[in-house]
Write a protein that binds this DNA or RNA. Structure first.
Lengths: 229, 229
DNA sequence: TCAAAAGTGTTGCCGCTACACCCATGA
DNA sequence: TCATGGGTGTAGCGGCAACACTTTTGA
């Protein structure tokens, strides 16, 4: 709301960038490794650093829909979870233009190795210098996921439809970077009542494991669980 | 990041809107009442509904600085707390243009009744229909404050420099809408060690009350407190 | 001396953590 | 039969909620 008559609109470009995260199965029997989707430098900026996938806001799409379109470009038809992260708009962040970036966080289960899609998955630990201020954006995304682990079912975004307790626990351990007690973990998860036992089992070289699903197919805040008697 | 050569920038305006909240002392001996700062309809949109203070993003300011500029317009030289809330960018949200709004949340102690500033304080309970999608933005701001009460010292943003325990408790009760036990409240607050006893007292018609200050003059996340041994 | 708000301890309960063993399967 | 991961119970401790009375002041 401005008091003065509308000034000439600033020549500002709005773009939507997406921090797309996944958890790739560990090599051998190692723990799962967190990965980001990065794309090659192109379009608006030059240089050799990769960056987050993004696009300019189209006239007819809202912000969420634009994020979905960005995801489509990198081969993700629909993410398990998508939420707005923050906006970045420092005057110098894109050389030559004034660009405001609305950043999103997206989570998907397993890296579909889709050859037609742009970009590649990079282990979080191996991410090099990124274009523009994308390192900040990525950091914000990672921080958000980590903090949400404790008070929501973010893990939903990273797991396949059916998964074992051990896999669920591995998600938490990989993202939190700590080891958890198996019995306590299972007890706590069970107490929340968010999982359904599918009855099915995963058969492997050893004793079969029960397969579970999230009872509600979306991310749930834990407060909401408690508040629903 | 776009693969194609840069398309002509969409004619998009970026504006920064601020949800400015305070807690006014209650009438008589009533509890404090939460208020928002609203401004009269002007500039970009017509109609009789008030709206949140805001302005177009100037070429030389980043988002945070723009929020500060907006606050200056409504008579707040520097807010106790300022954080980015979310961005709103549905195609139809401002008739006639494509405007993306980056919303901020700001907190200030007491309503300075400053005649030169634009706008007025309105009890949250009395807020009527707002311009554009500002009702959504306001709702997001209120939700953010409420949720942050439990895991941070947001109350810092709403209290004067020196305050009594009862006032601090009243902030929590007013925002949470529940009554709290005096002894438990004081014990918990003391255990966090975030307050300093000023030694001074507030004298009233009854027994004087100790005055406290926040030891760290900014909003603190409670996890950080625990993580600092 | 009275009215009104400030200030202070204890107890029971619940949830969290720590900890070690048997089970089912495929090889 | 063995190697490997799947699955289960308990006991101690600490934090949280419930609860009522004394103190200090101004009028």
């Amino acid at each position: 709301v401005t008091a003065a008559p509308p000034p000439a609109p600033a020549p500002t470009v709005v773009e939507v960038d997406v921090v797309l995260l996944t958890l790739a199965p560990g090599q051998g029997d190692g723990p799962p490794v967190p990965q980001v989707r990065l794309v090659a430098p192109a379009g608006r900026w030059q240089g050799d650093a990769e960056g987050l996938p993004g696009m300019a806001l189209p006239p007819d799409l809202d912000l969420d829909a634009t994020a979905v379109a960005v995801l489509a470009q990198v081969g993700v038809p629909e993410p398990r979870h998508l939420e707005q992260l923050a906006s970045f708009g420092a005057p110098g962040r894109v050389p030559g233009t004034r660009a405001v970036s609305v950043a999103y966080l997206a989570l998907v289960p397993a890296p579909h190795r889709d050859a037609t899609a742009r970009g590649r998955w990079v282990d979080l630990a191996d991410v090099g210098p990124l274009a523009l201020d994308h390192a900040d954006v990525l950091a914000a995304g990672v921080a958000r996921v980590r903090s949400k682990l404790s008070y929501s079912t973010v893990a939903y975004g990273l797991l396949p439809d059916r998964f074992t307790m051990t896999e669920l626990q591995a998600v938490y351990e990989a993202l939190l970077g700590v080891a958890l007690d198996k019995r306590n973990f299972r007890r706590k998860v069970a107490a929340l009542g968010l999982l359904a036992d599918t009855g099915a089992q995963r058969r492997g070289p050893h004793r079969p494991a029960r397969l579970y699903t999230f009872a509600t197919p979306s991310l749930v805040l834990l407060d909401d669980v408690i508040a629903a008697p």
